[in-house]
Design a protein around this nucleic acid. Sequence first.
RNA 1: GCCCCCAUCGUCUAGUCUGGUCUAGGACACAGGCCUUUCAAGCCUGGUACAUGGGUUCAAAUCCCGUUGGGGGCACCA
Length: 495
Amino acid sequence: MTVRVRFAPSPTGHPHIGNIRTVVFNWLFARQNNGKFILRIEDTDRTRYVEDAVKVITDSLTWLGLDWDEGPDKGGPYGPYTQSKRLDIYREKAEELVAKGLAYRCNCKPERLEKIREENLAKGLNPMYDRHCRDLPPDAVAPNEPHVIRLKVPLEGTTTVHDELKGDVTFDNTQINDQILLKTDGFPTYHLAVVVDDHMMDITHIIRADEWLPSTPKHVMLYEAFGWEPPIFIHVPLVLGQDGKKLSKRHGAVSIADFHRQGYLPEAVFNFLSLLGWSPGEGDEQEIFTREELIERFDIERVNLAPAVFAYDKLDWMNGVHIRNMSEEDLLHKLIPVWQEVGFISTPVQAEMLRKLEKLVPLVQERLKTVRDVIPLTDFVFTDIEMLPAEELIGKKMTVEQSIEALQKTQALLATLVNFDDKEMEQPMRDLATELGLKAGQLFTIVRNAVTAKTVTPPLFGLLEVIGRETTLRRLEQAEETLKSLLDSQAEVTD
RNA sequence: GCCCCCAUCGUCUAGUCUGGUCUAGGACACAGGCCUUUCAAGCCUGGUACAUGGGUUCAAAUCCCGUUGGGGGCACCA
């Protein structure tokens, strides 16, 4: 039997990492079993529909490399894959249950329902429908008057859900509501639609979040009512926010699009998500996985039962590892759009600039946690700098005069270098430091501060090469002037 | 309120099913050190956890029960 799993989001906004972690599990499971991964849009709530949500969802999946075999855009043998286009099917199925006496029409007003709900809550009971319409004569509610169709839940006994991870979970039928299957507007509720579609689309494994476990007995009842074999249920734990609560729209910015925007790599996010609730175990302590390794190694049976808190620290580290593991060329192509976005370089990239960028990549590679980090690390290469205040241009344990001299000698040296390149300038600069009676670090720091206007940068000489001789010399001179004015002003004070 | 799920370092987790090799292992973060032109990266070192009470057993992080704690669900939302 071919494994068929699905991701069935409702188009109400951006999918967040909690949803997507569950998608990762589904996708991994499908791929490692040579099965099918299906995308189905559950747009049965017209009040919550968000216009571009489907596109946001597909873009997020695509960015993460979670490709689907059947879906609204792709089609497939089980379509349509958008529930709003399957309304006739749900109606027919609901009517079928009414005909069988397993469901009934209900025309109770929302106000009445709300009243019952409050009364029950006040009495400490489950806030359930009082089944007012359940035993009305079959023609009490005319098919053409506004009404809903409800499931006739057994009044006694228990319903057991077999979950692949948790084992048997038994629910008392008296705690289960006569669930609405078909709404007044003719749309199905989630419970009807999901059961009908999962069955009709031959879904073999339902891998979804724990929040669905309490409603699963209703689904089991529906499978029984239709006379269908239920799929295998696998409820995986939720992903919690830093506050220990279920992730949701109003919690931290955790949509997949945000991760993209913030400079995380899809392979790192994918790697991280797959380890949120799963680990290889059995003594294997590997943390960094490629997509292929994950497909091979992932084991749905080993998914942890406890919910996991999503924390950025480890993702940042993991993203850095993936950046370091990339080839310089691949990284370059991740960095170019970042530089373009902030206007440092043009689109398309000029040939001469491209050569500079290639030089920059190895300089920044091991210093990046996200690709966006490249901005503050290299801005002074592309834009004019604002000279640091004079005090910060003075070398460590040095006088202003000494610092000025160091800047002058450096300019003289760099002006005469035959090739203005990284390797050729280092040794002469070290010699210069010795000549000036300075430690190399003292001299380099002065130059760094003067040319980059930062006290922390990637390796200096590589940067100077990319910045170029002309700009480097100009900035050194400006720094020298700045220090000289400091000297002058001090002299005035002394006078 | 009722129902359900869960429980190992701050966080992600290994170990739990198949009790002993666990004075509990790894990773992130943190602290200290080495390296070093700054920052990173890398390497070394360190601290921190089996929620709790009771069983079962020669022996329990591992099995059972209670308690506590956390989470989820109880819609004409998914």
